[in-house]
């Protein structure tokens, strides 16, 4: 019981933190997974949203909603810019996209810091969300708890939109077979642009919502970019549920993981990612190792048997 009590908060926090990561990565999940654009400026768009939250938010609900609207609008605009910018290199593969979007990220990051300043920023949240609540005798930040709800809503909506709705079908079809979409009278280009605009709005909105947890600072963009890449790739490109599971796994690794295996803490994130990718790639190396181990074991048994 003590053990359970000691690990309850980290386990719960793993879920909440995973939900945060899911929301943080949502824009990239859509842009990369469904739009086919490896957007390395995703973290920068998130940071923009976070700075907007710090600038506009004053602790009232109204201003939080306003910040969310402004952040999402700014993110959507950046998504439109991205759509225009990648159009000429659309057929040149991910590496050229990486070069382009990384260039945008560097320029955008410089502009963000020049405009908003280099100082870490305070982010005011509504009073009701500011403190902590008591769960089974433990303190837990109210804002994070609320975040679980928001993220669940977003995941549900995303799943429904992408997998069940007509719009989602068009997006998926555009990725798979643009000619067919064009034959149906839809412009693949419009669908693609719309996908990137929505992805940008998600990234900007996530920045506004995540700002109270991940303080806006010059390093925010890099941190968020790395996390998002991990989640999107581990969760399989474009899969909403995959990204959700990957995000919660990463969240647990960084909370429950560091408590259970403190000595391995510095290695946990990338170690776990590596293992996840190996397991996931199916025909990968782990089954082969297992098979070889079985062969060795059989041989060893045979040798033993022969000796007896």
């Amino acid at each position: 019981m003590d053990w359970l009590d000691a690990h309850l908060i980290p386990a719960l926090d793993g879920v909440a933190y995973g939900m945060l990561l899911f929301v943080v990565a949502a824009g990239l999940t859509l842009a990369f997974g469904s739009g086919g654009v490896l957007n390395l400026a995703h973290g920068t768009v998130y940071a923009m949203g976070a700075y907007i939250a710090a600038d506009i938010g004053d602790g009232s609900w109204g201003m939080l909603v306003l910040a969310l609207a402004v952040g999402a609008a700014a993110g959507a605009t950046s998504g439109g810019v991205l759509a225009v910018a990648v159009a000429p290199v659309a057929r040149r593969g991910h590496l050229d996209q990486a070069l382009l979007t990384f260039g945008i990220a560097l320029v955008g990051g410089d502009m963000l810091v020049s405009y908003f300043g280099a100082d870490q920023r305070q982010v005011a949240v509504p009073k009701a969300l500011e403190d902590s609540v008591t769960i089974a005798g433990h303190q837990y930040p109210t804002y994070r708890l609320a975040f679980i709800g928001v993220a669940a809503l977003l995941a549900g909506l995303g799943y429904w939109l992408l997998v069940r709705s007509t719009a989602g079908a068009a997006v998926r079809a555009t990725t798979d077979d643009p000619e067919m979409v064009a034959a149906l009278g839809l412009s693949p280009r419009v669908v693609h642009t719309a996908t990137l605009v929505v992805a940008g709005a998600l990234a900007g909105g996530a920045g506004v919502l995540g700002a109270p947890i991940i303080t806006p600072s010059p390093e925010t963009a890099d941190t968020v970019m790395l996390w998002s890449l991990i989640i999107v790739v581990v969760g399989r490109l474009g899969s909403v549920l995959g990204a959700l599971f990957a995000a919660i796994a990463v969240g647990e690794v960084q909370t429950l993981g560091v408590v259970l295996a403190p000595d391995l803490a510095p290695y946990l994130l990338f170690g776990a990612m590596g293992i996840a990718l190996l397991v996931r790639s199916g025909s990968g190396i782990l089954p082969e190792f297992a098979a070889r181990a079985r062969v060795l074991a059989t041989r060893a048994r045979a040798l033993k048997g022969g000796g007896a």
Binding site: D13, T223, L256, P266
Partner: peptide, 10 residues
């Protein structure tokens, strides 16, 4: 762990 720790709750 440094750098990279942003969640100190655990």
């Amino acid at each position: 762990p440094w750098p990279g720790t942003t969640n100190f709750l655990p």
